[in-house]
Each structure stands twice: as C-alpha cells, then as structure tokens.
C-alpha cells in the first residue's frame, strides 16, 4: 500500500552570502506520511519563522529540499516527469493566505476557474466546463449564478477565498495545502470557510494540510496537529490532546497567549514565562532554548528527540525524558486520522 504523500527526513536550509556560511535551517528533519485511503486534516502550527510556509512550498514542489525526500504515490517529486508531473500538479492543490491578490482584476472570476480546466483538459466542451465550474462553486456553498461573470472587486473576501477553494476542487485534488486560508478573512466569515474545507475532506476525500498560527481554528477543523518552532517539531499529536493539555513549554506558551473569545478564560491567569528572544539565537541544541523557562544543561548540545507521552501525543523536550523516545520518522504514528 503506497502512501499518498511521504516526507522522509526532509530538511531545508537557506544559505546567504557566497563566501560566508550563514545559513538558516527553515525545516529540520521532518517526516510525515499521509495515506490515500484515510483522508484527514493535519494542522501545521507555529509562529512566523517557524518553517510552516517552507513546508507548504516543499510539498507543492516549488522549492527543493536540501536533504531528504518527498515521495508522492511512490515517486520522488523531483523526479516526476511528463504526465506524472501533470498528475501531481493537478492532485496537489493550494489555497493561499491572501484572497485579494490572487485574482487578476481585469478578468471575471470564471477565468480563475476555467484556466485550470483548459490546462488540464478536464472538460470535453464548453458546456461540460461550465457544469464543472457550477458544481465546484455549489460545493463550496456559493450560488453559481451570483458568482459567474462577476469581477473580483464585486465579491467579498470570504467569497473570494471560497472561489479559491472551488478552483482547487475543480481539479479533483487528493491533497490540499491551505496556507493560512482564513487569516485575512473577517472573523464572521471564517466559520463558513472552515466548514467548506471540512466538507471537502468529508465528502470529496481530500486530505488537507492546514497551515496556521491560529490554534483556535486548528482545533475546530483538524484531527491532528504538528507544532513547529524554527523548523523543529516541538509537539505533535491529536488536536484534543495537544490543545487541551499542551506539554512542551513552547506549546504551553502558544496556547496561553491565544486571546480566547471567552470572558471567563482570561490572559494573565498564566504568566508568560518565556520572553521574546533576540533575533540571533541559533544554538545547536533545542531551538526554543533561549526562550525556555525550563532550560537545562542537556538541552544545549543537541535538539531533544520526541518523547511519547500518550498514544496520540509527543513532545520534543527533555522534561519528559522518562517517557519512551520516538524517532522522527515515527511522527505519523502519533497523528490520528
């Protein structure tokens, strides 16, 4: 049984300068497997600079990994050629953060939907193409007759973002990479977009990698979560475990800082122990070391491995070294589907 997508010890290092060796590890030894027969929603969470967008770019094949392999249906994605490459391009789709800048203001929104249909030769004739467009728009909860023929400026941000989802859906993708799809949409419209994404997974069997810094929406939509900090996995597991009982000091900091829209759960009950770090701390050890209130000697030489806390939760922190170690390749075992 081949996996839909397999990341094997993938790292991405950005280097700067010709002679000097300044390099930034944006993603460090990440492994993740998505199975074709069990579509799921995985959240990749982290603050800016945590490597979450790098992960999206790698999975979409926009950039090449420095080390490790990304395998799509049994073939390394850098080795895909010809028809196979087209299939990969069609089956792995993206929805980006900004619903405003992806539209060309000179074309009506059908352009965005009809171009992929033409490029991938999905429709036999105009009528067929139109039906596919209508079907995709209906699937994301829009009224096709209200949308087709309109210009982007005539639509709200929420509508445009749903058209982006529809565009991906037209191509019958297997995997959708949603990079902060709701962060620029009004709070009142977020719910509808999240619902649309969840429907995609349930009714169309699309696996979704939901990339975000917003853990509240992650909790609502995803089954499992991977928390990244400066390219390293800090904590991973089921959303219920990780968000309700965060263990890693970084995850705890993240969860404590969420402004919960709940008048009875206020900031300040837990003090922020970790402060903002200086920009230049790239130690060999745990990336969170400089900000960690529990930093110890042994955190310095090398990053801590994942320690499995329960069936669906593991944290990369020596505070939990009494628990069994977990190799980074086993990350996927932690993620319920």
């Amino acid at each position: 049984m081949t996996a839909l997508l397999e990341m094997k010890n993938v790292s991405k290092v950005y280097s700067r300068g010709l002679l000097s060796k300044i390099s930034t590890t944006a993603l460090d030894n990440m492994s993740l497997t998505l199975k074709e027969e069990t579509p799921t929603i995985v959240t990749v969470a982290g603050e800016s600079g945590s490597g979450k967008t790098t992960l999206a770019m790698l999975l979409l094949g926009f950039i090449e990994a420095t080390a490790g392999q990304i395998i799509y249906k049994g073939t390394d994605i850098t080795k895909l050629r010809g028809e196979e490459r087209m299939t990969f391009r069609r089956e792995v789709q993206a929805v980006f953060q900004d619903p405003f800048s992806v539209f060309n203001p000179f074309y009506t929104v059908d352009h965005l939907l009809s171009v992929p249909i033409k490029k991938f030769k999905l429709a036999r004739n105009k009528q067929d193409a139109f039906e596919r467009m209508e079907e995709a728009l209906t699937a994301v909860g829009l009224q096709p007759n209200e949308i087709i023929g309109r210009y982007p400026h005539q639509l709200s941000g929420g509508q445009r973002q749903r058209i982006n989802v529809a565009r991906a859906l037209v191509l019958r993708p297997k995997l959708l990479i949603a990079d902060e799809p709701v962060s620029m949409v009004d709070a009142s419209l977020r719910a509808t977009i999240l619902e649309t994404l969840q429907n995609l997974q349930r009714s169309y069997g699309v696996s979704i990698i939901y990339i975000t810094h917003d853990l509240t929406t992650a909790y609502h939509i995803a089954e499992s979560i991977v928390v990244l900090y400066r390219g390293q996995v800090m904590e991973a597991g089921s959303v219920d475990d990780v968000i309700k009982k965060p263990q890693h000091p970084y995850t705890r900091l993240l969860i404590d800082s969420i402004p919960w829209p709940d008048i009875n759960r206020r900031w300040g009950e837990t003090e922020i122990e970790a402060k903002e770090s200086e920009l230049s701390d790239y130690s060999k050890g745990c990336r969170f070391l400089a900000r960690c209130p529990f930093a110890m000697e042994k955190c310095q030489p090398a990053p801590p491995p994942l320690f499995q806390l329960s069936q669906f939760q593991a944290a990369a922190c020596y505070l939990f070294d009494q628990h069994p170690k977990l190799a980074s390749e086993q990350l996927t075992e932690l993620l319920p589907v």
């Binding site: 977020r190 719910a191 509240t216 909790y219 829209p261 709940d262």
Partner: peptide, 23 residues
Amino acid sequence: QALIRSLPNLENKGVFQGIPGIA
C-alpha cells in the same frame, strides 16, 4: 448575537456558525 455565536471555543468543536448573507 450572531457574531458571538460564530466564535470558535473549546466546547463546540466542529460546529461552524457563520452569519448568513453578506454585508
């Protein structure tokens, strides 16, 4: 009321209540 209802919290997982219609 609709605005408050549309907010995600830890109790109502997976319940999405948008505000119908557009401004």
